[in-house]
Design a protein around this nucleic acid. Structure first.
Length: 652
RNA sequence: GACCCCGUCGUCUAGUCAGGUCUAGGACACCAGGUUUUCAUCCUGGUAACACGGGUUCGAAUCCCGUCGGGGUCACCA
């Protein structure tokens, strides 16, 4: 048997990251009953009966028995996306997920979806569902994690993969056991300071302009009997990790080595007073137990990484490789935040108030009228509306109600916002991939398959990127142009259902297909046909006329447009309903234009305004066909009636 | 403020690691022109950048130092 000391020495530099299951099964003679099943939690319990056996020793024994530990370098690549379920998937999160997915796929590895729901106050099951849906809409899939098809993704039985459960709220024992391990080794300790106490210390330090750092002396010098007494009394406390005294270097695959001095690092909390782990502990424990080899995350996590590396050292885990990606900002350089929506809505509402004598009653009632039934479901009352305007709340649903009433667009922040605005997942993904990454060689348009083949960590950039909606729109325009007319039709049906409760399918019936057809070549988003083609489903008697359009197309040059409409009525009337086709209309209208020596513009525009209320619509013949003979003539008639000057009407 | 990261057209970026082929390439936006019944497309052309200052070198966008600028972090959030 090889010398154990030597073996320990050998593994010092590379600390094999084995799950305890592997340690223990390695010790089993072949063919014997396994000491534990695949669950790391049970493996932990198995070792607990041998408290003197810590991880490195087990590794050494494993080595001594000719067990070949899988070293990080030749192990299968494992990445994960670990969102916290506090809302829809943010575009930044989407890019993180995309890169982790692409890296795993490129190397034939495993991609894990793990839900980090250790924030009890903010995590919701609804958000988990939303994030799963957002990821699936983007076309990203995962090898381990919650099952998207399960009725209850939280059900441990339904989760996919052998390192589950994949909800941190279901792994609490595991974190406690590791925290316990650290405490036994003197690497963690209980701290009874209250949040208020600490906040006061921080505030003091700030007021005196001196840097604040948590001071461990008091806590670590607490005599054991006192600690026991406090615990018995049920005093709330947290568990802190004792930072090592040496500097920590993070070997980042994008940024290179980043060293943080020991003096800059403080003892951070690993177990909150409610017994839940903090992000740091849970993240590190899960990455190790799930055998994650590469962590691709946003640069905002860079300063967390030394903490994680220190934890990994103390726990005997090999650090995964880290790659920190540049951040994504708004076009103006501000941080892209969910609050941007609240900000926009608030500004618009305040502007409205200014023009309406600061009358909040009226604002509330008008919103209520516009969004009937919707308000109750989101709990908007006059009081909460006031709170919202006073920035006391940033509730994500209020801005939507306000925006709907004021007809203002809200900035898209979440993946779902882009979905509602009519972006195609392939366009969003393509654009997102270019934020902080580039395949080189002037290649810019590509899909998931391309990424699967070509994604390369080396090509991740270092500097922050601004989100350019114009460019995204251009990508989306191209993506839509690529769709066949049938695909476009199907997509529109889906979008009408997703964003408008099928308003257009109900309103148009079998005219939905020609409606889709005429918008296919003039849409940059899936939403434009509905936003611009509202008049198709508006009642004939409720078309609103844009005054500028009336002036320009109907009244200019001595009511030339009105005359055209008048002239056109009889010939249109004479087209039989069953011959109301584009070619027939074209013939009739062009004949008229030729006869009067008018350009098509002079004839089409008055018609367009009469039937749609504005100067913009799909090609006029298509428009008239979709509307049908009845609607067309009814609208022309009503338009003439409304816009013919008074005297003229009286004179005739 | 302290610590850390970053700095090529307005924006995203190629080029930087292995200095010359870079009078710096592409995309989006913008401007001009063309196509078109409106709109949206589409086509052609154009404007536009190595943050600044030192150094190393025959030669610097590329290597080194400094300055300035931008950003991140500093929670019982993740």
């Amino acid at each position: 048997m090889p010398n154990l000391q030597v073996m320990r020495h050998d593994i010092q530099g590379q600390t094999p990251c084995l799950t305890l299951y592997e340690h223990l099964s390695a010790l089993q003679p072949p063919g014997s009953e396994p000491v534990c099943n695949r669950s790391p939690r049970i493996a932990m319990r198995a070792t607990a009966t041998y408290p003197q056996v810590d991880t490195p020793v087990v590794s050494s024994i494993a080595l001594a028995f000719d067990y070949n530990p899988p070293s990080m370098s030749n192990r299968k690549i494992v990445t994960r996306f670990a969102p916290s379920p506090t809302g829809h998937l943010h575009v930044g999160g989407a890019r993180t997920a995309l890169f982790n997915w692409a890296f795993a796929r490129k190397h034939g590895g495993t991609f894990i979806l793990r839900i980090e729901d250790t924030d009890r106050a903010r995590s919701t099951a609804q958000s988990t569902r939303a994030i799963i849906d957002d990821l699936r809409w983007l076309g990203l899939d995962w090898d381990e994690g919650p099952d998207e098809k399960a009725d209850d993704p939280y059900d441990p039985q339904s989760q996919i993969g052998e390192h589950g459960p994949y909800f941190q709220s279901q792994r609490l024992d595991l974190y406690k056991e590791h925290a316990q391990r650290l405490m036994q080794a003197g690497r963690a300790y209980k701290c009874f300071k209250t949040p208020d106490e600490l906040k006061a210390q921080r505030d003091n330090a700030k007021a005196e302009k001196r840097p604040y750092k948590y001071d461990r002396t008091e806590s670590i010098n607490l005599p054991q009997p006192t600690i026991d007494k406090y615990v018995e009394e049920g005093r709330p406390h947290v568990v802190r990790f004792r930072m090592p005294d040496h500097d920590i270097t993070v070997h980042d695959l994008v940024l290179g080595d980043v060293t943080v001095k020991a003096s800059e690092l403080e003892d951070f909390i690993i177990l909150k007073s409610d017994g839940y782990p903090t992000f740091h502990l849970a993240n590190v424990v899960d990455d190790a137990l799930m055998q994650v080899t590469h962590v691709l995350r946003a640069q905002e996590h860079l300063m967390n990484t030394p903490k994680h590396v220190a934890l990994q050292e103390a726990l005997g885990f090999e650090s995964p490789k880290y790659a920190h990606m540049p951040l994504i900002f708004n076009a103006d350089g501000s941080k892209m935040s969910k609050r941007d929506k609240a900000k926009t809505a608030r500004a618009a509402a305040k502007e409205w108030m200014k023009q309406n004598n600061d009358n909040i009653d009226r604002l509330y009632h008008e919103i209520k009228e516009e969004c009937a039934g919707y308000l109750d479901s989101i709990g908007l009352t006059k009081e909460t509306l006031q709170d919202f305007l006073d920035k006391k709340t940033d509730d994500v649903l209020y801005p939507q109600a306000i925006a709907r009433f004021l007809h203002i667009p809200l900035p898209e922040i979440d993946v779902n916002d882009f979905r509602l605005s009519g972006y195609l997942p392939e366009a969003l993904l393509n654009y997102l991939a270019l934020l902080g990454w580039s395949p080189g060689n002037d290649v810019e348009r590509f899909d998931l398959d391309f990424l699967k083949e070509n994604f390369d960590l080396k090509r991740i950039g270092k500097s922050n990127a601004r989100f350019d909606r114009d460019k995204l729109l251009a990508f989306n325009t191209e993506a839509i142009a690529k769709l066949s007319s049938d695909e476009f039709h199907q997509q529109l049906i889906r979008h009408d259902g997703y964003s408008r409760s099928c308003t257009f399918q109900i309103g148009l019936g079998n005219r939905f297909r020609p409606f889709a057809a005429c918008y296919r070549e003039r849409s940059r988003t899936l939403d434009e046909p509905f936003a611009n083609g509202q008049f198709f489903v508006t009642d004939d008697t409720k078309i609103e006329y844009d005054p500028k359009a009336i002036d320009k197309a109907l009244l200019k040059n001595d009511d030339q447009g009105l005359a055209v409409l008048n002239d056109l009525q009889p010939p249109l009337e004479s087209i039989p309903t069953d011959k109301w086709t584009a070619s027939e209309l074209e013939k009739t209208i062009k004949d008229y234009a030729q006869q009067k020596n008018l350009g098509m513009g002079k004839v089409a525009q008055p018609l367009r305004v009469a039937v749609s209320g504005s100067t913009v619509s799909p090609p006029i013949f298509d428009t008239l066909v979709i509307l049908g003979k009845g609607s067309t003539l009814a609208r022309i008639g009503r338009c003439l009636q409304l816009n013919t000057p008074q005297q003229q009407t009286e004179a005739s």
